[in-house]
């Protein structure tokens, strides 16, 4: 029925007492998400939106049976809270905050991989399963239940693509924000693999953007392993040169994350490349997606 979240997902909100944490807890509950607890060190024993707050992740997990966590923690404290969350045994973590130092993200990613934790972000809108629940900040009004998977590097563009599909009566199985930072906690190909193996997803849309080499790498995976139709849109055709960092990590392999380079790699893998977001409606119609 979905990837990453299902009806046994029990969510805690870290940083629940903050301005954004409490507001987003309200929206997640309103959407039907099972938010079972929150964590803010020093605020244990209080409640937010009727949800009990704990001082530590371990306590929250023990008391509520939580198995997933969404972060609204200030960037400077994310690494510490992330390690605490993994040590408490949580296996799905969504990191919404932006501006987390890359050095911290490298440590987070390395530890998550070692412990078999699926983590998304930083700078992600999170996960939304239409009609079931959401971890993160996606605005519910744009989504509808259905059988198309969406993976997006940009938060706002994940809403845009879901919105266009929903208006044409094409629903989504799961919408995943992979995060917009130069280093993210999970690569695009890992999320594609989940959709490929999900019996309730018929096709996948990749919403990428210029920079890095996630799309180029994923193209290789798509060519080798994906049987379901994949469409892709890459934002930033007209992004001025020199306003983005040129990362040697991409450069070494002879590719610098350009719009044209991504289009070429995706097309070569059999992906239908969309020139403009609205073209996703035609693509969905052509494949008779629901």
């Amino acid at each position: 029925m979905s990837i990453l979240m299902n009806d046994s997902t029990r969510v805690i909100v870290q940083g629940i007492t903050g301005r954004i944490g409490s507001a987003q807890t309200h929206w997640m509950l309103e959407y039907g998400t099972r938010v079972v607890g929150g964590v803010t060190p020093g605020k244990g024993g209080t409640t937010v939106e009727g949800v009990p707050v704990f001082d530590s992740v371990l306590e929250a997990v023990k008391e509520t049976g939580a198995n997933a966590s969404v972060f609204f923690v200030p960037a400077a404290f994310v690494l510490d809270a992330f390690l605490e969350t993994i040590d408490a045994g949580v296996k799905l973590i969504v990191i919404v905050p932006e501006h987390i130092p890359v050095k911290d993200v490298l440590k987070m990613r390395s530890y998550a991989m070692e412990k078999g934790v699926f983590a998304l972000g930083p700078t992600t809108p999170g996960i939304l399963v239409p009609g079931m629940g959401k971890m993160g900040i996606m605005p519910a009004s744009l989504f509808a239940p259905g059988r198309v998977g969406i993976i997006s590097r940009s938060g706002t563009l994940s809403y845009e693509f879901a919105g266009i599909l929903s208006e044409t009566n094409v629903g989504q199985s799961t919408v995943v924000g992979m995060g917009a930072d130069p280093v993210v906690l999970r690569n695009l190909a890992d999320i594609l693999e989940l959709f490929e193996n999900d019996k309730d997803t018929d096709a996948v849309i990749v919403v990428g953007e210029v920079g890095g080499e996630q799309e180029e790498k994923a193209a290789g995976f798509i060519a080798r392993k994906m049987s379901k139709p994949v469409a892709a849109y890459i934002a930033g055709r007209y992004s001025p040169q020199g306003k983005k960092m040129g990362h040697a990590g991409a450069i070494v392999r002879g590719s610098a994350g350009t719009h044209a380079g991504k289009h070429e790699a995706l097309r070569a893998a059999g992906v239908e490349v969309l020139e403009s977001p609205i073209d996703v409606a035609k693509w969905a119609k052509k494949h008779k997606l629901k």
Binding site: R153, S154, T156, E209, Y233, A235, S239
Partner: peptide, 16 residues
């Protein structure tokens, strides 16, 4: 725009 991806896409569409 309220996001980088949306901003880039808006630029691309305006540019048409």
């Amino acid at each position: 725009s309220s996001g980088a991806g949306l901003g880039m896409a808006s630029m691309d569409i305006i540019g048409q």
